Deep mutational scan, measured.
Amino acid sequence: LVRYRTISKIPQITLNFVDLKGDPFLASPTSDREIIAPKIKERTHNVTEKVTQVLSLGADVLPEYKLQAPRIHRWTILHYSPFKAVWDWLILLLVIYTAVFTPYSAAFLLKETEEGPPATECGYACQPLAVVDLIVDIMFIVDILINFRTTYVNANEEVVSHPGRIAVHYFKGWFLIDMVAAIPFDLLIFGSGSEELIGLLKTARLLRLVRVARKLDRYSEYGAAVLFLLMCTFALIAHWLACIWYAIGNMEQPHMDSRIGWLHNLGDQIGKPYNSSGLGGPSIKDKYVTALYFTFSSLTSVGFGNVSPNTNSEKIFSICVMLIGSLMYASIFGNVSAIIQRLYSGTARYHTQMLRVREFIRFHQIPNPLRQRLEEYFQHAWSYTNGIDMNAVLKGFPECLQADICLHLNRSLLQHCKPFRGATKGCLRALAMKFKTTHAPPGDTLVHAGDLLTALYFISRGSIEILRGDVVVAILGKNDIFGEPLNLYARPGKSNGDVRALTYCDLHKIHR
């Protein structure tokens, strides 16, 4: 019993810090008490220290592992850092350059016999395009090294910054494609005289377009951006097909006994025919423009016929181009109408809503002055909100995010209106959640004399007048207030005048 009563005193000691020596009952000389009392004092002292730490809000209350900052290894790049964003855009520009100039170089340097010394005699450094290609190869190699040090988000939505895990993730992902696209074939085969082989191998750079397509997928929600990307894709495919079309004609031209190829026909049409040795002929500019003209006309199913396939190889390629053109029509131009419709969806919704308003007016036989006010209010409210119901949009977000959005939407009023000066951010967040926005066209009466005042109004834009009878008592403008002081009276009061809008007004109100 003594032991039980001794232990039962522990909660009292913990909360009230009572010393055991003052209790005459606990001072009985028993061996059990002498053993338990020192333990009680020690526990009391420890609990006292913990309570003191909690009340003082000291940093040592938290466990040590929670006080440590997340460790980022040296030379690790955050995937959302500004440097990584700028670097990704730079790589994107280099990939676009590669997609345009690599097929052009591979096709127009394929057994090209233009006048001038061969590239091997001039030297590697004197070729501007080769120098640019070398810079692109170096940048792609540097990009691989950067990807080995860039964080990523795993399946659990955690940012991984450990170098080993980053390397394994990159090896399992895009490393092989990036490595093949970054191989400097110019340096590996330079001086061997195989410019045709170098041009063909350099087309491996186009593998990076797969990554670019995935990154550009984030802009699919913007109709104008999608339309622009589709047109660029169409032009890029036409450019690639033009390079292939020229390569076919250029390879067949020296081996044909009869002059029936499209390059021969082009030379005869523009007065620059090929001679018996295969030299001469149109310039590279004429060849490229004509090839691009043929691919565009074939892809769009126009086909004027002034550039036509004559050999079997050219006919087979033309059939493939027609098939590609039909697929592009289905996948690209078939979506253009939907994209344009999405661009004008706001206008369509406006006309639909206006039609419903006019049908309501016609069905209920609203008189002319009231009908005009109804239409003007709808037009003004639509121009202010673009038909978007803010309350319906915010309803799907958590309250903390709703408060931040409301604070942002009402920031101008909260910053410049005098009653809100000096208020804490928590108070402003709470008030912003209570605001209701209303609009009024010129001549609209917001409050009639004798109406119950259940709200306090803040003028965000425009001006109003307060009338008693036919006498203008006051004219209020931006950041002015009218209405009933909230919670100042037990019952809502009545208006002693009319409140009429002089201009288009936007008002925020808080109800009782």
Rank of each mutant, 00 (worst) to 15 (best):
P117G: 08
R211P: 01
P70K: 07
W245A: 04
D137I: 01
Q365S: 09
T113E: 10
I284T: 13
H408Y: 08
F234T: 01
M322Q: 04
F175P: 01
I270Y: 03
H79W: 01
I135P: 01
I332Q: 03
H448F: 06
H364T: 06
I284Q: 03
K434G: 03
R371I: 01
V357S: 03
T352G: 10
D217P: 04
G346R: 07
V180I: 11
A99N: 01
G193Q: 13
E314Q: 03
V302N: 06
M433E: 01
L109D: 09
V307R: 01
F435E: 02
A106N: 03
H162M: 09
S298P: 01
A119I: 07
W382R: 03
K272W: 01
T300A: 04
A238N: 01
Y293K: 01
N306E: 01
Q269F: 01
Y288A: 01
R214E: 06
C406W: 03
M231N: 01
R71Q: 12
D268M: 13
G164Y: 11
V289Q: 01
A432F: 05
D404G: 02
Q365Y: 01
S81C: 04
F333W: 06
A392E: 07
L292Y: 01
K202N: 02
K66H: 05
V357N: 03
G305P: 06
F185T: 09
I198E: 04
F378R: 04
P118S: 11
Q68T: 14
G116V: 08
P441H: 09
L327M: 04
S412Y: 11
L263R: 01
T352I: 07
R373I: 01
N410T: 07
S313D: 05
A381N: 13
G164L: 13
H416P: 01
G223C: 11
I405T: 04
D257C: 01
V357R: 01
W240I: 03
Y384W: 08
K285W: 04
G116I: 08
G173L: 01
N250F: 04
L110P: 11
W174T: 04
G346Q: 11
G422K: 12
I324S: 03
T311S: 01
G426R: 03
Y288T: 01
K202Y: 01
Y344S: 11
G199D: 08
